[in-house]
Design a binder for these strands. Structure first.
Lengths: 205, 205
DNA sequence: CAAAAATTTTAATGTTAATTAAAATAATCC
DNA sequence: GGATTATTTTAATTAACATTAAAATTTTTG
C-alpha cells in the first residue's frame, strides 16, 4: 500500500496528481473540475498533466483504479488479521475508513464510472464486483463460524459498501473529525452484524 | 407526493423530463449525459428542454430538488406512522427505499452538487442537512424512548443516508430485485439500531 | 560540465455540446 | 372555425475546455 522506497519521481508526481484530482472531483464535482484546476493544485499547467495521462478520461480511470486498489488492500489486510468472520468484516471497514479519512487521502468517489470508455469501465466494474464479492465472502464465513448473525449477504454488502463509498460526500478533511470517524463509523456499520449470542460484547480495538 | 389531479400538461411533461434526466444521469453519468440524450428519451429535441428549464445546471438542480422532496416525504410519512423511534427509523428507510426502487424512481444520485451554481447548491445543501438532522432526531427519540440502542447519531445517520443514496449505483430497475430490496434492505440497515433488551424481535411489516 | 533524457510551458487548434432566436406546429379557448 | 396561446423544431452560434505540437526548461547521467 505504501509507496516503494525506490519510487521514481514520475510515480511520485503521478500519485500527487491523482490525489489532487480526487480532491477536485470530490470538492467541485466532475463537471466542475477542469484540468486547469487539477494542475493548479500542483503548481503546474494543465498541459503538463498530459505527460502523466493520455486524457481526462484516463485521469478519472486512474483515480478510480487507485481508489479500488486502496480498498482491495484494506480487505486483504483484514483477511490476514481477523480471527473470524466478524473480525474480518469489522477490520475491513476500519482499515478502509482509515484510508479514506487519512493521509492516503482523498479517495475519489466513483460517480462517473458510466462515462468511462468501455474498456476502462468494464475494468473498474470488474474490480468493484470482485471487491463486493470479497466482502460477501467475509460475511458468509462469519455466518459459518458463528460470529455473524445470518443475514442477506448481498444486501448487507450493498449497504456497507454504499455507506463507505459515500464518506467523501460528508467528510472534507477535518482532522478532528477524522479521529471520530475512525472510532465510530466502523462500529456503527458492523454493530448489526454481530451474533447476539456471543459471550463478549466488546468491540475490537 | 402524488401529482395533484389538476396537474397541467406542463407539470406532467416536466416531471417526465426530470425522471428521464435522472435515468440518464444514473446510467450514463453526468458528463456522459447530453441534453440530447435526455430529450431523446422523451421523443423530443434537445432544444425543447429549454422550455421547461433555463439550462442544464437547472435541470440537475430540479432533479436534486425532486430527489430531496421524495426523501422528505418518506420521512414525514414515517414520523406520522411510527409508534416509537425505532419504528420511525425503520419505516423511513423502508418508505425511502420503496420510492427509490419503485415507480416514482429513478431518483437522481446527488453526485454533482458541487457544480451547481452557488444559490442552488446552498439550497440543496440546506435541504440535505435538514434531512440528515431529521433522521438524527428520529434516532435520538428512539434512544430516549428505549427502542434504539444508544449510538453516535451523527455517524449512524451518515451511514444510513450513504447506504440509501448509493442505491442507484447498484440497482438498475430490475423489478424482481426491487421486491427483494424493499424486503431486505431496510431490515439490514436498521438491524443494528434495535435495542437488544426489547421483548419483541419481530420486524415491522 | 556536457550531453541526454525527462518534465513543463507556450501558444494554437479542435471538438463537443450547450445555448439562442425565429419559425413551425399543436393545443386550447371563445 | 378562427384566434390565441403553448409547445416543439430548425438552424445557427458560442464558449468552454480538452487536446496537441513544438519549444523551453529542468533534471539526471556519464
Amino acid at each position: 500500500m505504501a509507496m516503494p522506497a525506490e519510487a521514481t519521481r514520475f510515480q511520485l508526481q503521478r500519485d500527487r496528481m491523482l490525489r489532487a484530482a480526487a480532491t477536485c472531483f470530490n470538492r467541485k464535482g466532475y463537471s466542475g473540475t477542469s484540468l486547469k484546476d487539477v494542475a493548479h493544485q500542483l503548481g503546474l499547467t494543465d498541459a503538463a498533466l498530459y505527460y502523466y495521462v493520455r486524457n481526462k478520461e484516463e485521469l478519472v480511470y486512474q483515480c478510480y483504479l487507485r481508489a479500488a486498489e486502496l480498498g482491495r488492500g484494506a480487505m486483504e489486510l483484514a483477511n490476514e488479521t481477523g480471527a473470524n468472520g466478524f473480525e474480518r468484516a469489522y477490520l475491513y471497514v476500519r482499515y478502509h475508513v482509515e484510508i479514506m479519512v487519512g493521509d492516503a487521502g482523498p479517495v475519489a468517489i466513483m460517480s462517473e464510472i458510466p462515462s468511462l470508455k468501455t474498456a476502462h469501465r468494464n475494468d473498474i466494474l470488474k474490480i468493484s464486483r470482485q471487491h463486493s464479492l470479497g466482502f460477501e465472502a467475509i460475511l458468509s464465513s462469519g455466518i459459518q463460524d458463528g460470529s455473524i448473525e445470518p443475514c442477506d449477504v448481498r444486501m448487507t454488502g450493498n449497504a456497507v459498501m454504499g455507506a463507505i463509498n459515500w464518506i467523501p460526500k460528508w467528510f472534507h478533511g477535518d482532522a478532528a473529525m477524522a479521529k471520530q470517524v475512525i472510532e465510530k463509523f466502523p462500529e456503527v456499520l458492523t454493530r448489526g452484524l454481530k451474533r447476539a449470542s456471543n459471550f463478549s460484547s466488546g468491540q475490537i480495538e
